[in-house]
Structure formats: structure tokens, C-alpha cells
């Protein structure tokens, strides 16, 4: 009885130690990448390649999800506002919720689904196939050559994707509100313009930039430390690491979301 109690305490302790270790690794990993900004030639070619992967190739997904998100929130708000006879607030409500909250979060979720998971799996497989050892042996710095371009690309691409998401969401809201339910176009557009201020747009941009950074940071680190963090470094390890990366980046993203919102509202 007493023995099993000690065992439980021991196992809790070891879990806590592992979590702290893991957090420390994440921190040093990020610091290593950021330190490569100085004293190295900026890896422009690789960054463009990654902008293509993170940004351009995510656009179709962003446009479709943006459109439907806009349509569904317009539908919900219309149903609510019509009870108060305030449908002219529809544009403002749609734009406000998209620009401040839904746009950054939904776009980031799409990026996690498409880019974060793929990146973590790719980096994990590179680890498995000794490609990082190979880079080390060729005296090529993997933080500079592999990690930095991906992080920079995310910091640039995710805010742009979010803006596209917002615009298409507003378009989706226009379709439902103005074209389907006959809200006046003037009310929809001017309502938006009168309610939204620069601070709202700025909040969206800050959030999405941070989200982009968080997603790629976590995904890269979880793949890179596959051999340390996973018991089974094979295919199962890659899938486990990818799951961890997706879950952790989503949770961390929402945490950052709360912090930024509470600081800026």
C-alpha cells in the first residue's frame, strides 16, 4: 500500500520533470532559431520556397473556409438581430467578430491542419532518416538552413492569410445578409466601416502573426526532438509527435489569443 503510494508520487514527479524539460527544450530551440538572424546570410531562397508552401498553397483552403465562416455567422447574427429590429448592425457584427477573433483563430486552425501537421511529420521523418545528422556532418547549420526560413515564412504568410480569410468572410456575410436576406447594402457596408477602427484590424494582425510563429515553432520543435521525446522513433513516433504538435499548438494559440485580447481590449 505504502509502496504503491511512493510509486505514484514518483511517477507524477517524473512526468513533471519531463514536462519542464520539454518546455526548456522548446525555449532553447526558439532562441537558437532567432539567434540565426544575426551574423548569417538570410536564407532568401528557402524562405520563398516556404512562403509558397505555407502561404500560397493554403490560399484555396482559406478562401473556402473564410467564405463559409462569414456566411454562417451572418446567418446566426441575422436571426438574432432581426428579433431586435437591428439588422442594419449585421455588417458591423460580422466584420467585428471576423476581424478581431474568428479570422485569426480560424485561419490559424487551417494553418495548423495543413501546414503545422505536415511540417512536423516532415521534420520528424528527416530526423528518422538521419538527415539532420547529415546536415551536421556537412557543417550546415540546420537551425539556419531548415528552421529559420519556415518560421519567417509563417510570420509573413499567416497574417496575410488571415486578412484574406476576413475579406472572404465579409463577402460570405454579404451573400447571406444582402443577397439572400435583403439587408440594405448601404447598412451592411457602412455599418462595418463605422464600427471597425484601426485598433481592431491591428489586433487581428498582431494575433495572426503570433499564431503563425507559435504554430511553426511547436511543429518544428516536436519534429526535431522526435528522437528524444518519443519512445518509438519509427512511423508511430512520427504520428505521435504530429498529434502532440497539433494539439499543443492549438492550445497555445488560444492561450496567446486570450492574452492579446485582454491586453488590447
Amino acid at each position: 500500500m505504502f509502496n504503491s503510494l511512493t510509486l505514484t508520487i514518483e511517477s507524477i514527479g517524473s512526468v513533471v520533470v519531463r514536462r519542464i524539460e520539454s518546455a526548456g527544450r522548446l525555449g532553447t530551440f526558439l532562441a537558437q532559431i532567432v539567434s540565426r538572424l544575426w551574423g548569417h546570410k538570410f536564407p532568401l531562397g528557402e524562405t520563398i520556397k516556404q512562403l509558397h508552401f505555407v502561404g500560397a498553397r493554403t490560399v484555396p483552403l482559406i478562401l473556402i473556409s473564410g467564405l463559409f465562416t462569414g456566411m454562417v455567422i451572418a446567418l446566426q447574427f441575422y436571426d438574432t438581430l432581426i428579433r431586435f429590429g437591428s439588422v442594419e448592425l449585421l455588417g458591423a457584427a460580422v466584420a467585428m467578430s471576423l476581424i478581431r477573433e474568428l479570422g485569426p483563430v480560424m485561419a490559424a486552425l487551417m494553418v495548423i491542419a495543413r501546414v503545422g501537421s505536415a511540417t512536423c511529420a516532415e521534420i520528424g521523418i528527416m530526423r528518422n532518416e538521419q538527415q539532420f545528422d547529415a546536415l551536421d556532418c556537412m557543417a550546415i547549420d540546420s537551425y539556419h538552413y531548415i528552421m529559420l526560413p519556415r518560421l519567417i515564412a509563417a510570420l509573413i504568410a499567416v497574417p496575410l492569410l488571415t486578412a484574406l480569410f476576413d475579406v472572404f468572410g465579409i463577402g460570405g456575410g454579404y451573400i447571406v445578409g444582402v443577397l439572400i436576406h435583403g439587408v440594405s447594402e448601404g447598412a451592411y457596408l457602412t455599418g462595418m466601416a463605422d464600427t471597425i477602427v484601426w485598433n481592431d484590424v491591428l489586433m487581428g494582425l498582431i494575433k495572426s502573426t503570433l499564431f503563425g510563429g507559435v504554430i511553426l515553432w511547436i511543429s518544428l520543435a516536436k519534429g526535431f526532438y522526435l528522437h528524444i521525446e518519443q519512445k518509438n522513433a519509427g512511423a508511430e513516433g512520427v504520428s505521435q509527435a504530429t498529434t502532440n504538435a497539433v494539439v499543443l499548438s492549438a492550445v497555445l494559440m488560444l492561450f496567446v489569443d486570450y492574452i492579446v485580447s485582454s491586453l488590447m481590449i
Partner: peptide
């Protein structure tokens, strides 16, 4: 992609936020 993204940012900040 960059141009389209920047255009979206510009639309949000100039036309909607009225900067």
C-alpha cells in the same frame, strides 16, 4: 500571394477601418 494578401490588409485597414 503576397500582393493578394497585402491587398486584403489594405482593404481591411483603409476601406473598413477608415485609416
Amino acid at each position: 500571394f503576397i500582393i493578394a494578401g497585402m491587398a486584403a490588409v489594405a482593404y481591411l485597414s483603409v476601406t473598413i477601418a477608415g485609416v
